[in-house]
Design a protein around this nucleic acid. Sequence first.
DNA 1: GTTTTTTGAGAAAACATTTTCTCAAAACCT
DNA 2: AGGTTTTGAGAAAATGTTTTCTCAAAAAAC
Lengths: 346, 346
Amino acid sequence: MKKQVKKKTSAKIPVGIVHVAKKAGVSPATVSRVLNDNPTVDPKIREIVKAAIAELNYRPHFAARNLPKGQTGNLALVTARSSPVIFANPFFSKVFEGIGSVLDESPFNLMLSLTPSQMRRLMDSRTVDGIILIAVRENDPYLEEVEEMELPSVVIGAYRRISQMTVFCPDYEGGVASAVKFLAGIGHRRIGLLDGPPDSYKSGEDRRGFEEAIRQLDLEEVGSLTAEEFLERDGFLAFCSHFSEGKPLPTAYVVSSDHLAIGLLKATGDFGIKVPEDLSIVGFGDIPIAEHLQPPLTSIHGDLVEMGAEAARTLIQMVEGRKKIIKRVVYPMQVVERGTTAPPKA
Amino acid sequence: MKKQVKKKTSAKIPVGIVHVAKKAGVSPATVSRVLNDNPTVDPKIREIVKAAIAELNYRPHFAARNLPKGQTGNLALVTARSSPVIFANPFFSKVFEGIGSVLDESPFNLMLSLTPSQMRRLMDSRTVDGIILIAVRENDPYLEEVEEMELPSVVIGAYRRISQMTVFCPDYEGGVASAVKFLAGIGHRRIGLLDGPPDSYKSGEDRRGFEEAIRQLDLEEVGSLTAEEFLERDGFLAFCSHFSEGKPLPTAYVVSSDHLAIGLLKATGDFGIKVPEDLSIVGFGDIPIAEHLQPPLTSIHGDLVEMGAEAARTLIQMVEGRKKIIKRVVYPMQVVERGTTAPPKA
DNA sequence: GTTTTTTGAGAAAACATTTTCTCAAAACCT
DNA sequence: AGGTTTTGAGAAAATGTTTTCTCAAAAAAC
């Protein structure tokens, strides 16, 4: 008695597999078989069913389809940073590109969670089959939460803390060390680090790489700074307060992000300090803007598109193979020399 | 006979509403009622059920829950631009922030589609209840596709073309016009436009606003350029080829994005053209870097966080109210004067 | 020409939940 | 106390699909 009503109201009532089956004069199971390219269906019937599908403009319901599979077909990209911070993260855009390209070839959809509450909802409600964590910080509560869930997951960028998870990470430590070596190679002896916030893994790694290189080369650490975030204004403010207090300056800075470096450049410019004559600066991440600055920014570069792609590929393997893969991959970083570095004056 | 096996293997077997019901000695329906705060359940029973939920660490399955509702609880953010282009889009990051903050307060999850194929999958498979389209271009096929689907949707940034959809758009036209007026106000008579790719709506709007202002103020259009994309390199290349062909230069450029403006600054610097003494430049979007450049970039600013938030709010209203809302909101843009603009020399 | 194997397709169970229907028990009224 | 209303909760249908089971018909083997 309901059916008559349904017939009346046109197109917009969602059409399911049973409607197609009725139209084609077969059972829903057969329609399903056609949809899934099951070879045990007669070519003739197949054609009839396909015609019915086309005519009704039927599209399978993704969630319903995945329900019996016990999977959802969704992957999540998770971070708890606010979006300005994410977009300022030197490598986020590239990583993203890599992830996107892999997902495009896969049958998975991508969910995005920008806050801890969103992430918890995603995990609690079994909405995703796997998780890519990015931009994790020291005190973020959810890393443990993810580890406790038996949900497949990979982490991008946090190397040390994590024991039993798969991690993809730029070689922060090695990158910063090679920047120090590069600066030493052109004559610098008094070098400083402009580092990001202490609760970021990257900051810890940067500092480790920096100190190790300074020690190995028997150099002097001078005028190091810590910024509150990785953004331009943080670099600007860090240097301003340091300088106005009359503290000692190095002849070169290694800086934890290109954005910070831009803020530092601005501050030095405002104080009449010439780059690279008075001060050399090396950024990190080699964002597209770097080479278009004046002077163009010397920076530390790595293939982070591939890193993102590899992380996504690995996660998909874990989800599809239903097995845990534990590995840690570190991506090499190297200095690209441009206009903000030169030998020290004296 | 299966149950014994289940009991053995601990935690990781997914626990459903029936397990909870069994544990609490009630029917699945009652558990559902507790979950949905249905008042027709005895407080005592409610407590027992809640205890069982807690003990089994039960979490409702999002997709299954939404199946009978005929909804999915997901919203999609859709674009077909590659991620470098998206991230270079002057307002994307801010818009994103607005969307994220609204979604955080709502029960919806966010899906992200970075390519047309991903988007089609999302729409075809009834995976989302609503769509936010962003960075649409003239020849993108999917705008019509979305319009044909009866799926609630809002568009961010494409103003003219769309008739029957809800649109949120910065006032490109008015912003560019006010930049021209600003430049005329400080004495410029020969002004050029550095515009983005022709298939972008923004480019069309920019040009319209530019030409109208030029006409109204009876000025001369000189040396206008078209870039292939909105990125630094595109601005750089556009100016280089123009200049090396010896074509006439204006005394000021209005530029369609801050990223383009940075490329233009680099090019002018390389050719020894002084900004703002020889040439004034106004960017668009006021990205965080703008004020940290040297000289700091004069740019066109708007509250795009609010635009993103309002778009998300409206979409949610459409989805929840099951009604179509058609409106068009234009967000005002205004010039922020900084260091790349000055009166012309002679 | 009968038996065996293969092929093809329907019926029904399963996935996790909500919702409607239904009915028994408790509470209220006179 | 007998009848009516309210309350509470179970049973079953519904959501859209896949999958397993089952069986009939066609093809192959003898």
